[in-house]
């Protein structure tokens, strides 16, 4: 064991030194050429499909003609911040920004605490097999596409024969047009989101719960603490850090309100309450072919998203000396 260790340490140290001294850098690069070849395809991919679009943001400052092909894009006329001004001055600016944060805020409000409670309850299940079955079933919706979930939602919320309305009627209520009424549409978004992701969200919390020192519970039981007291005094403080970090990154991601979900479920009658930045960019850009204008709106979003993630990471680092990077 120690013998093989010794043979290893020498070349590693040599490589480190080689990389450190500037004169040897070229040699070190040549020595590792195999690894650069391995990176090359991925780097080329990222350059074309991730970095080239970043350069393409410049179309937000151009007036381009989408109907004459590539020439129309590169031959665009410089218009400065005109597209941005048009967006900030339009009705849509306030509406879609508000919708984005209201919808994702509502989702966070309803899914975050419920996920924690569900994880705590699953953690209390005594029968291991039952626990595993419940977990497996709760993960199911995560593996289903939003198209299928939308199909299920159309069926469940249907005004004529949906289960939800049948239940409402049975309870003495009136049938509601959940998908077509601006008053209820956001609750459909929240409900389908919670349905799809609550089970999956418990994974990280359950992992944190599994890491709590069992001796803490043992001594608490000896001291006569009941389940509720144990939960409040031991469990929650033990997973507080994980929960805080999760919350911070969820807040940092509030600008993403669920593009695919909304695009599949909404319709013009509920645009007022459900049109978010992403759906607006999609309609303006790819349906109306206002490439420059849509790109400008998207840039606005990307910059806010970047700022929010950076702030979230900064906060997480402050809290735990550990962030995304």
């Amino acid at each position: 064991m120690s013998g093989s260790d010794r043979t290893v340490i020498v070349p590693e140290a040599e490589l480190r030194n080689a990389a450190r001294s500037p004169g040897m850098l070229g040699r070190s690069i040549r020595k590792h050429h195999f690894y650069y070849w391995l990176m090359l395809p991925g780097v080329v991919y990222l350059l074309i499909f991730k970095y080239l679009p970043m350069l393409g943001i410049s179309i937000a400052f151009l007036e381009i003609n989408p109907f004459i092909g590539f020439k129309g894009v590169i031959g665009g006329e410089w218009v400065g911040f005109e597209n941005f001004q048009r967006f900030f001055g339009s009705y849509f600016f306030g509406n879609i920004v508000a919708n984005t944060f209201i919808i994702s805020g509502l989702k966070l409000l309803f899914s975050f605490p419920t996920t924690i409670v569900l994880a705590l309850l699953i953690n209390e299940l005594v029968n291991v097999l039952f626990k595993r079955v419940v977990q497996t079933i709760s993960y199911l919706p995560h593996f289903i596409s939003w198209v299928v979930v939308a199909g299920l939602a159309f069926k469940m919320f249907s005004t004529s024969d949906g289960l939800v309305n049948q239940l409402l009627e049975w309870l003495g209520g009136e049938r509601l047009s959940f998908l077509g009424d601006p008053r209820y549409f956001r609750s459909v978004l929240v409900a389908t989101h919670v349905w799809k992701e609550i089970g999956w969200g418990t994974i990280i919390i359950l992992a944190a719960l599994a890491g709590v020192n069992p001796e803490l519970y043992e001594s608490a039981i000896i001291d006569g603490a009941n389940k509720l007291q144990q939960t409040i005094r031991i469990t929650l403080p033990s997973i507080a850090m994980v929960i805080s970090i999760l919350l911070i990154f969820n807040i940092g991601n509030l600008i993403n309100a669920g593009f695919e979900q909304i695009l599949l479920l909404y319709s013009p009658v509920v645009y007022d309450v459900s049109d978010i930045i992403d759906t607006y960019v999609y309609r303006e850009g790819l349906q109306q072919l206002n490439f420059s204008y849509a790109a400008a709106v998207d840039v606005f979003k990307s910059i806010i998203a970047l700022a929010m993630v950076v702030m979230a990471n900064f906060t997480a680092k402050k809290l735990e000396q550990e962030g995304l990077w």
Binding site: L46, I48, F49, K50, Y51, L52, P53, M54, L55, G56, I57, I59, V73, D278, V281, Y282, G285, L286, F291, A294, A295, D298, V299, K301, S302, A305, L306, V309, V310, W325
Partner: peptide
């Protein structure tokens, strides 16, 4: 990692 933080967005990617 930077490609996680910042995107060109829907329209430029579509054009590419």
């Amino acid at each position: 990692f930077f490609t996680i933080l910042f995107h060109g967005g829907l329209i430029p990617t579509y054009l590419v």
